[in-house]
Design a binder for these strands. Structure first.
Lengths: 142, 142
DNA sequence: GCCGTCTGGTTGCACCATGCAACTATCTAG
DNA sequence: CTAGATAGTTGCATGGTGCAACCAGACGGC
């Protein structure tokens, strides 16, 4: 029946409404490319990461990740250090500057999402969060 | 409180899990660029559209939309005709070929989403759909 | 210790996505 | 009829991605 169809439309609308098309700024209005924002988020949360690990989390190809990290470095937000246990790998880590950038970003996100949540009827907020998780998990398994 | 934070993480994960990064194929596995897929969907659903109208729906700049339409035309999926009521505008419309492409796409989407919904516990499907709508609406108003 | 293979990264190449600005054609008010 | 708004097109600059080719270090079997 039409649950599929509804979900399709719902997702399509969601994607557009969220403004994920913009390549050079986050949907939250920060002048930071989307990919960099994702990377920044992971690095800020979990500290130093192997580049390959980062690629895996962001679901990006290693080459893309490599360039992404290079960009972060060019902004002075991250640095590469040789992996201690494996001569091939590198560890990526935020600089203090990068930490600040991540914090700014997080704040902007919080503001945006807070505003969005304000528009969601009080009683449904938990449902929305839960639904999103359920959906993501389901997509992950597919 | 941390509802914001949860929502942020949830959305970020959702975006990645859905694979929206891929520029040259839909998250549903079809070898069609994402933008074209969106456009195709609108045109298949509502028939002929003014290019500016399409731009508005896809939340894209008119120039981007213009090129997007050109690509559809190059694939033989759409055609431009002068707008009957306004000498400046053009109407964009799918060709039979485009209709077929849209149908294929819709089917692939349905398959993917059907698979996803299968992983969502029966009782929660309606909630998920509803939550997504609520969230989209909330984002729209922001 | 050596060789074949695997794995993490980097770089070259091709393509897609987007916006802004400048320009043309057309429409609309006064 | 002219000034200003609107629909589209095209040039230019940025960004995002993957795949393939290539390099270097790691690992296993002999």
């Amino acid at each position: 029946m039409s649950d599929d169809r509804e979900l399709q439309e719902a997702v399509a609308r969601f994607v557009r409404a969220f403004g994920l098309h913009q390549p050079d700024q986050t949907p939250c209005g920060q002048p930071v490319p989307v990919s960099e924002a994702h990377a920044l988020g992971e690095l800020a949360r979990d500290g130093a990461l192997r580049q390959s690990d980062l690629a895996h989390r962001l679901r990006l190809e290693k080459s893309t990740t490599s360039r992404l990290v290079t960009q972060l470095i060019n902004r002075g937000w991250a640095e590469r250090t040789p992996a201690p246990d494996d001569g091939r790998g590198v560890l990526v880590q935020l600089t203090p500057h990068g930490m600040k950038a991540a914090a700014r970003l997080a704040e902007a996100r919080a503001e945006r999402f807070s505003a969005v949540l304000d528009r969601v009827p009080e009683g449904e907020r938990a449902d929305v969060l839960r639904a999103l998780s359920v959906l993501t998990e389901a997509m992950d398994e597919t």
